Simulated scan of single mutants.
Amino acid sequence: MIEIGTLEGDGSFPAYLAEPEGVPRAAIVVIQEIFGVNEGIRRKCDGWAEKGYLAIAPDLFWRLQPAVELDPDVPEEFQQALELMGRFDQDQGVRDIDATIREARKRLSGSGKVGCVGFCLGGRLAFMTSARTDVDASVGYYAVGVNSLLGEKERIAKPLMLHIAGADHFVTPDIQRAMHEGLDDHPQVVLHDYPGEDHGFAAEMGNRRSAQAAQLADRRTEEFFARHLG
């Protein structure tokens, strides 16, 4: 774990850091689900480090409940996660992601590219990060509520990939249609649909994981970052 200073200079927050062997090819900010920087998110970071990337997962809930780690397969913990999401300041969260991007650039000596990948709430934040920061490439898995963010799409100047779960009970068919209608013609955005898959299909572990779809989405993400980050 490392500490990252806020953009406002009023404090610092913890983040999980996974470093590759040798010189990193680039950096990736891994944006948590509503369950905190839990084992699944740390595994995501470790996986990117094994592929040669510097990976950092900031604890975005630090102002609400520092170091929270929740299990989506435990009903009581799922409800706790929903409660935290309801109180979470997403705009502030993007500023903390921006601070993490700047920390990653420093660790790359200012010469490497930085991407971000987020899941669930983190997928939504990845979209917001693409529109509001200088991140070099972004990926969102089953991002929630993107239809309410489409007014920001003209600010997306770097590549963005979104993975859409076709049977997502949090992202209903009407929202999926709005995403396609609003983004299919955007020159920087690519959408991938996974028919029949539910929210959380690419989780590293647990009941939500759907291995075949997860492997396909992860391969697309890896190729996307290799193309745009190096």
Rank of each mutant, 00 (worst) to 15 (best):
A99Y: 03
G123V: 04
T133S: 08
A126L: 05
G123A: 12
A167S: 13
V114D: 06
A165I: 05
E103A: 05
Y141W: 12
A131R: 01
R105E: 04
G145P: 08
S109G: 14
F127V: 05
R155V: 02
G118W: 00
R105A: 03
A137F: 03
A131E: 05
G110C: 04
G122L: 05
R155H: 12
L121T: 15
G166K: 09
V146N: 06
V144D: 08
T133W: 00
A99I: 00
S111D: 14
N147K: 07
L108S: 06
Y142A: 13
G122D: 03
K113L: 13
D134R: 14
L150Q: 12
A126P: 02
E103V: 02
H163M: 05
G112C: 08
A143H: 12
R132Y: 03
R124M: 07
D96P: 07
V135Y: 00
R102T: 08
S111G: 15
G93T: 07
R105N: 13
A104K: 01
G151Y: 11
I156W: 02
V144Y: 08
A157R: 10
A137K: 00
E103D: 01
A137S: 07
R124P: 11
A157G: 10
A143C: 13
G93I: 10
A99E: 01
N147F: 06
N147R: 05
C116I: 10
